[in-house]
Write a protein that binds this DNA or RNA. Structure first.
Lengths: 200, 200
DNA sequence: GTAACTTTGTGAAGAATTTCACAAGCCACC
DNA sequence: GGTGGCTTGTGAAATTCTTCACAAAGTTAC
């Protein structure tokens, strides 16, 4: 989150930003900002604040965004398409090296700049390309089975959009985005009249 | 999350589940499960566990899922389409009452079972329909402006897919899903060889 | 050069969350 | 009806996270 705002400030040509400014932008407190950043190093200058451009570079380094990550997208449906369309991905160093589906009517069809590949080739392609990240955008029923296959092929991180709880070995990183669950959280907030801090 | 698993257990015909079972399913600890559930009431039976079907109903009640929520989708792009396609929504009581875009080539076109409406009508439709929830699936640049308009029209909760930080008054609930940020989290985990507990 | 002002970095205090551990309750079997 | 085996609910302890508050360090103005 800090990176997102610092990039904005950087393009605006801002030289430095205080923990107070960053806190207001991010909806947190100055002390929190300083503690968070101090975990990774001592980036600020007393009396001045944090050097925006330099700190941006540091955070990109910390997050591992200075290199290119190869990503495979599994599932050539609407979610997959939304992801592939999203410019932010390539900008941030995520390169989509393949799109896979098991629907014969989709395989071989053009899909953005790429072509939809047969899911049967997925495992060997992951190994050959050494793609470490997979985005899973397929129906829930098949999710765990596909996960097991790509874990076997050496995938190291999975971003899961299937509304299913899946399991991976400890050396594989997993993030799940469950849109129904997000909406249910809003339903809970509305039902119980929860008042926010105004940002999320 | 508990609800998701309890529903699975329920359809499997399981009568009761212990905190230990739920903890294993959800990747947490038995004590955590008991503390969490005890916050809302005393649902379990000592020696037996929690009554699956009954607890499911309780949780649905707590989350406010026993009623129907009207939802407007803003942005008739890929993300909006993915959401509208997603059966889970209606199943869980979220009814899409309108899809809006400001692209003249899209307005009036059929879109799933609905028709794309002109964004100009958005505010008055929200008021007329009394739709409390909006899903924002539009480019970042316009996000805050649209948010201000729908907040003015009385929206009470927003699920934001635009990769922008937006601000709402305290009485409006906001959840943001930022796919680039999720991937960056995975990049961080890979870069720093973080070992997970095996589920997320 | 120095005085007034800003802002970081960080121990210590405070608050929140998670885990522990065990009494109390329920079931099943004899 | 009593006994043994489970499992919850929950205070208390342990841990983690956040906030406070201030010395140290830098900047600006003159």
């Amino acid at each position: 989150m800090y990176l997102r705002y610092l990039e904005d400030l950087d393009t605006q040509g801002k030289q430095t930003a205080s923990s107070d400014e960053l806190a207001h932008l991010c909806g947190t407190t100055p002390a929190q900002v300083r503690k968070d950043l101090s975990f990774f190093g001592s980036f600020g200058k007393r009396g001045l604040g944090y050097p925006v451009h330099e700190l941006t570079a540091h955070l990109r380094e910390i997050l591992g965004l200075e290199r290119e990550w190869k990503v495979v997208i599994i599932g050539a449906g609407k979610i997959g398409a939304a992801l592939a369309n999203y410019r932010g991905f390539r900008q941030r160093g995520f390169k989509i090296v393949g799109v896979y589906d098991n629907d014969p009517t989709k395989i071989g069809q053009p899909w953005g700049e790429a072509i939809v590949h047969d899911m049967a080739d997925l495992a060997q392609d992951i190994q050959r390309e050494e793609a470490p990240i997979a985005v899973l955008a397929i129906p829930s029923d098949d999710a765990q089975e596909v996960v097991d296959r790509i874990v076997g092929a050496g995938i190291r991180a999975i971003l899961n959009f299937a509304p299913a709880q899946i399991t991976v070995p400890p050396h594989v990183s997993l993030k799940s985005v469950n849109m129904a669950m997000e909406l249910e959280g809003l339903s809970f907030a509305l039902t119980n009249s929860i008042v926010s801090r105004g940002a999320a």
